[in-house]
Amino acid sequence: MRLLLLYSTVLRGGFRRYATYRVATVAGVFTNTVFGFILAYTFQALWSERPRLGGYDEAQALTFVWIGQAMLATVALMGGGFEEEFQQRIRTGDVAVDLYRPIDLQLWWLASDLGRAGFHLLGRGVAPMAVGAFAFDLALPSEPSVWAAFAVSVLLAVLVSFAVRYLFALCAFWLLDSHGVSTLSTLLGVFFSGMLLPLTVFPGSFGEAVQQLPWAAMLQVPADVLLGAREGGDVVAGWGFQLGWAAVLFAVGRAVQALAVRRVVVQGG
């Protein structure tokens, strides 16, 4: 109970920290919207040539674009989450101070990142989606239950995304310059989440394989839930897929962290 109180304070702090930077939020919304338009016109061209590509009709494909733009910041597909600060603290040795606190490092950053994701969902998600819905014919559901199922899936997507970014961030303990790793993380995230093209578009065994990777849990699964491409038992299976990856990656993150913390002193401070 008291632990919940602590981490909810951290979560609220995470939310408010990002809420402080209003200009950055407006700039982000603008960028998401512009990218949304570019991708939407590209998808329109593609789907008019190849209708039902990836199992979606044109309205669904366009909706996929705007779901992607709305979730881009929330699941931090292109970075911009807690990991930048965490890596910085590792590099400078400030992380040692965090270890002097009676907290769990992973849960601490998770709470902080959930707060950030909450803010990004509202601040960076709603506006691009509204613009998209205004400018294009989108296939958005009217049943509240589908939206509720989508909300659960978004939360799970943030958990998986956090766990992946936590692992990448821990690399900073071994690498003095982690820019390369961050770039790799962004590339993998953008491609394998379905951000560029829905994963169902890819043919054959490659298409099947990419849908089993953790990045699929960050956008493809929640998008399919909202689009109605997953219904009933498939929704639950999608949640299970997300939860499974979250659990595995959390466990790996903890193990790597235990190894990494032993290195703290080597970085000095």
């Binding site: 702090g13 408010r16 402080t20 040795g93 965090d98 002097y100």
Partner: peptide, 19 residues
């Protein structure tokens, strides 16, 4: 032990930067 000790590093901070 962390509950019974206090630590201050002159060059490091434990405070929330943006808040």
């Amino acid at each position: 032990l962390t509950r019974r000790i206090g630590v201050v590093f002159g060059q490091r901070t434990t405070l929330w930067w943006d808040l």
